[in-house]
Nucleic acid binder design. Structure first.
Lengths: 215, 215
DNA sequence: TAGATTGTTAATCGATTAACAATC
DNA sequence: TAGATTGTTAATCGATTAACAATC
């Protein structure tokens, strides 16, 4: 599985391919051509073939791609065939929302702990996992071989907590705090900035209103 | 404010500029050069100047950019100086998390309603807004001049609900369902696919492990 | 004025699309 | 075999970076 130097643009499209292939598979579709898939996904067939060929030749001339096989292979590329232990830090609504996503477990993300500073939440159980206080975090990180920490805490606490995580050897942070984390470059950070997303939406509404003179 | 044909890449960076300028402003910084900002944000100064000059000359030679002024102007470009009425559909953890983001209101996003199918949630109040049942949705959409609907419902319901939204003239959908929405092209859709984001994280962990032989 | 820094043009780089020979 | 469709090379397009004249 050749993988060095794949562009972020390509990686960013893989989950979407994986999703569409999953839907096709559930619908009982056995094979699909890049051309048919391109119509479904509103991208070019050329892009699909180029993207996939970064990782190997998954198709067959004259036939197309086997849906189940291609999906499995993309899953492997994304590392979904392996399991990753995960903790959630911040048990507010967002943290609890993440904890409740059943499909995470299906893709190999195993929730090993939920932490918060609020004593009222202590012991509340979500998906069989009791919410713990922050003073237990380091022990869990050290003993449970945690790969991923989801940070669903206010930005004011994010730097402090991410330092604790890094000190305890966390490999990757899924960051929902409204701030960038400047961490050693061997720590992988994937940020979800919800307010950035909403601002893009706002931008598009504003442009639309300008074009249609509703403003 | 010239705006036609600005690339998505540029738009996607504006919220981040806005965020950094906000932090600088709060820290009492009055002016900043593209060079200094580039170091803070880990981008090139050239990119900052190019990005901003899509919208006009906000700086001054020999001086740089006035932080407060530039922030305000980017806010206007993003439409944050206007208010948008919004509803949340799906009052699970994620919907409630969005409802509780205080900063949305600060940026002009005004929550006018929260809807769910679960009768147990009926009447529960979040940020002064009672959760209502779905049968009241159309009335609210028609009477309250709603611009934005945040969709925090399972993907199985997303298509059905988005049809209702479109029928009632919604302008923009902030989509958290794990599916793409194929709607008329005058409806703006901004999707947040959390599972896609987690898969990208997983990809990077996997690559990292391969490189470091932990696999 | 001299120094600093922008706005903007030109050069480079990378990503997307098109085309087609290879091959199932 | 003939038809279909991939894998891959080449062409195009767009985005990023570099350079520098304009100007505060």
């Amino acid at each position: 599985m050749e993988s060095r130097g794949i562009s972020k643009a390509v990686i960013g499209r893989l989950p979407r391919y994986y999703r569409y292939l999953g839907e096709l598979n559930e619908a009982g579709v056995e094979r699909i051509s890049s051309s048919d898939l391109s119509k479904k996904m509103h991208v070019t067939a050329s892009q699909i073939r180029q993207d996939l060929n970064n990782f190997g030749g998954f198709g067959q001339q004259g036939y197309g791609y086997n849906v189940k096989y291609l999906r499995t292979e993309i899953g492997k590329i994304l590392g979904l065939d392996q399991s990753h232990n995960m903790v959630i830090i911040g048990a507010g609504n967002l943290g609890q929302a993440l904890a409740n996503y059943a499909s995470f477990a299906r893709n190999g993300f195993i929730l090993k702990g939920i932490f918060d500073v609020n004593p009222e939440l202590k012991g509340k159980v979500i998906r069989d996992i009791p919410i713990r206080m922050m003073d237990e975090l380091e022990t869990v990180l050290q003993e449970e071989n945690i790969d991923i920490a989801a940070l669903t805490i206010p930005k004011t606490k994010a730097v402090e907590v991410s330092d604790i995580l890094v000190r305890n050897g966390i490999k990757a942070i899924w960051n929902f705090a409204h701030t960038d984390l400047n961490l050693p470059k061997d720590v992988i950070v994937e940020s979800v900035h919800l307010s950035d997303s909403l601002m893009k939406l706002s931008y598009n509404i504003t442009r639309y209103k300008e074009e249609h003179g509703e403003d």
